[in-house]
Each structure stands twice: as structure tokens, then as C-alpha cells.
Design a protein around this nucleic acid. Sequence first.
DNA 1: ATGGTTGGGGGCCAA
Length: 262
Amino acid sequence: MALRLATWNINSVRIRLDLVDRFLDEYAPDILCLQEIKAETASFPDAWFTERGYTHTAIRGQKGYHGVATLSRHPLDASGSIDWCKKGDARHVEAGIAGGIRLHNFYVPAGGDVPDVEANEKFAHKLDFLDEMIAWSGALAGPTILVGDLNVAPYESDVWSHKQLLNVVSHTPVETDRLKALLASHDWIDVMRHFVPEPERLFSWWSYRARDWRASDRGRRLDHIWISPTLAPALKSMRVIEDARGWEKPSDHAPVIADFDL
DNA sequence: ATGGTTGGGGGCCAA
């Protein structure tokens, strides 16, 4: 059974329904995982998705900030979420998909501007969140897929300039070390890097603040698709849809697609 | 060294 999975930090789902429509038309994922929906669960446009065949949903929204949604053409079961760092934030939702696979959709805290846990409690929260993920991941059993905006670009070629970003939140050693520990904690296969090994450039996010995001190409790989090693034989391909970053009124993140044959 | 842009929600904060 072919299964196409997509993950996309949409930066407000309601303001970007036209872009989502185009993406669904052109790429037809079976499952779409969104982050930063910026809507309460009750104001999520689920009827809009139902009309387009995404009749199974697992949504965790909150007012104004964050929020994740998993939308599927095939049944989802036993959805749930974890209250990371006991903050009550909507940053994670999980559900069962075909083949007994658990799918976890994450929006890891961005961490603010200053990479110092004493001066910046948002950065401390981000590191605590990653530490909780490492402990959780180490205890996982069964086939699992982890996707989402992890807000960390772990490798040198995941950013436009390793040296210039070493002290920039998303690529500091305390963050990249944690992401590598998280990868090791379950022997995760980093699907994007599986198909595009270092040192090839691989980005999924470009700042809104660039004059010309495509020309300057100062991107980072903040979005991820990871799978349990047992799912490796089912993995077929991966694409970053960079074009979508250039669509009208875009998200600052591009969607990432993985294809499986389960 | 700095500022650059976007969205939500309500008169700035988070990214």
C-alpha cells in the first residue's frame, strides 16, 4: 500500500487555506501534518478538509499560538497528546495509522533569540522540551514516525553558514547535540538526510525578513521526518517542496513529503 | 551591528 506523508509548518492554517488547497491538489498526500495552525481546536476548519477527503483528524489547537493537526484520508486511531514540560501548550499530537504505526506530529519551541538559559527562559524551555523528548524516545516500542518542526538544524549543511549560525538559536551546539542524542535514542532514520546526505545543502525554512529568500538562500532545515529502523524497507522517497515557499502569501516553511510502500 | 517580515489578537508578543 502506497502512503504519502507530508509535514508543513503552515504559520496559521486559516489564512493559508488557498495554499493548502494548491498543495493538496498538486501533491495529494494521504496524511498531512500541520504545525503552527494558530487556531483553537474548535475554530480549526475541519469541514474544509472533510470536503477534500481528509475525513480523519487529530487536532490539538490553542488560541493565538502553536497548535498541531494531523489530517488523513485513511482512518486514524487512538489519538492522544503529551503535555510536554507541563505547560499546557498544543505542541504535539499522535495517532495510529496503517500497519500499527504510531505517528507523532511535533512543534518544538523556537526558543527565543538569546541562546542563554539564564537570560532567556524560552531557550531553557526548548532545551527542557528536547530533554523530555530524548527520555520519551528512548522508551518507544513499535514502529513509529516522528515529524514536524523541531526548530533545530542539526548538521553543518542544514544551515546556510555553519560558522555564522553557531551562536544563533536553532544551530547552537547545546541544541544540535540534543537533536543528535534524540536521533540516537531510538536509532531513528533521518529520512531527509537518508536521501540527501551531507554535505549537500538541505533546507526547509527561509526567513520572511530576506529581501529575496530564493536569491540569498539563507535557509535552515528545521522540519524533519524520522522513522523507526524497522520501517526502512518501506521508505521510497523524499522531497522538499521549495516551490511552495514562493507561492503567494507563503508560510516561511516549505512542506516536506515522504513516500512509503507499506 | 542592525534590521529586516509575518500572524494573532487586541493595543505587543512570538516567531
